[in-house]
Amino acid sequence: MSEIDEFPAVCERCCGPDKHIKMIRQPFGEECKLCTRPFTVFRWNTRDSGNKSKKTIICQTCARSKNCCQSCMLDIAYLIPLELRDAALKMAGIDNTLAIEQGSSSNREVKAIMADKMESRLKKEDESENCAKARDILTKLAEKLNATESKLNKKSNLNKKSETSDIKNVDVSKILSKLPFGGLLKEPSDPSVTSFFIFGINADVPQYTISDYCHKFGKTKNMTIVHNAKCGFISFTSRKSAESFAQAIRNNGLNKDNKKAGLLLLDNKYPVRVTWGNLKPLGRTNEEHKKIGLVVLKVLKQLAEKK
């Protein structure tokens, strides 16, 4: 194989914006997918293809006969599928027998002979009324396909932006609105409530530290701690255990003000806030958790400044 500057018959989608990319040429490297004759294979990489190289799969004679790209086999001028192009030309009554005849035989030698005849005919073919008519039809067809593709891409981008916007704003706002940041340690009137909302949990707070403290007051049936969100929920199996837990926090000497969430110092070094609250969802994605965590930090600052 050798490195060359020569450029095969490939379209812009396959070669990319750079028309002077380096290619590797392999003479008689493979059989043409259409006429089965050995042909010179070209391989290359574009800026967008990464480590995966592209190559030609049909010979230049077949590409010229079908006026298509040697790599993707789209019409080289209008970038539309050959089946669609040929169907449009057939409906318009324009002769397209060359391509049909070439693919009608399964005999390798017959295909090769037809390809040679095709090349000879293409060299002698001049401009005609049919050629002008075909160009007009294909131009309109390409414009419609491009317009449709453009609309689909715009719709897809709008949907992605909408989904991202929902995650960043609406969904997180709904989650935050249900979290009891303004709750207290006063026992709720509903005796079935046995859970607490705990927030201000930094990444360095081990979950076992929280669970060890809670188990002093009774058995827990649920403990959900999301460190990225800096908060979580703790639920006891009995109301008595929950009330003992709340009473211990009220009497720990750190909560002279009963008008805000109780302050608890875990393991004598991890300050957190605790309030009664029913279990609520804390989001599913890292983006949601991080946004909740930012709000938690703001609430902690407000509580620290509140007298």
Rank of each mutant, 00 (worst) to 15 (best):
E3T: 06
P8M: 14
C11P: 15
C15T: 14
P17K: 06
D18P: 09
I21V: 07
Q26K: 12
P27V: 03
E31N: 08
E31I: 00
T36R: 05
V41P: 07
S49K: 06
Q60C: 12
T61Y: 14
S65A: 12
C68W: 10
Q70T: 05
C72H: 00
M73A: 03
L74T: 03
A77R: 08
L79S: 04
A88I: 02
A88M: 05
A92G: 11
G93V: 00
N96H: 10
T97I: 14
T97H: 15
L98A: 08
E101F: 14
S104V: 00
S105W: 02
E109L: 03
K117W: 10
E119R: 12
E119P: 02
E119L: 03
R121W: 15
K124G: 06
K124T: 13
E125M: 01
D126M: 06
E127R: 11
E127V: 10
E127Q: 11
N130F: 14
A132N: 11
A132K: 11
D136H: 14
D136L: 12
I137V: 08
I137L: 08
L138W: 10
T139C: 11
A142L: 04
L145S: 09
N146R: 11
T148G: 11
L152W: 03
K155A: 13
S156C: 12
K161R: 14
V170I: 06
S173D: 15
I175W: 10
L176N: 14
S177K: 04
S177R: 12
F181K: 12
F181L: 08
G182T: 06
G183D: 00
E187C: 12
P188V: 01
P191Q: 00
F197I: 00
I201D: 07
D204R: 06
Q207F: 13
Q207H: 11
T209A: 14
I210P: 13
Y213H: 07
C214W: 07
K216M: 13
F217R: 03
G218N: 07
K219M: 09
H227P: 07
A229S: 07
K230G: 03
K230E: 09
F236E: 03
K240D: 10
E243R: 12
I249N: 04
R250S: 10
N252K: 05
L254Q: 13
N255L: 04
K256T: 09
K256A: 15
K259W: 03
K260L: 04
L264W: 00
L266T: 08
D267W: 15
Y270P: 11
Y270R: 04
P271V: 01
P271R: 06
W276N: 05
G277C: 08
P281G: 11
N286M: 00
E287N: 07
V295F: 15
V295W: 05
K301Y: 00
K301L: 00
K301G: 02
E305H: 00
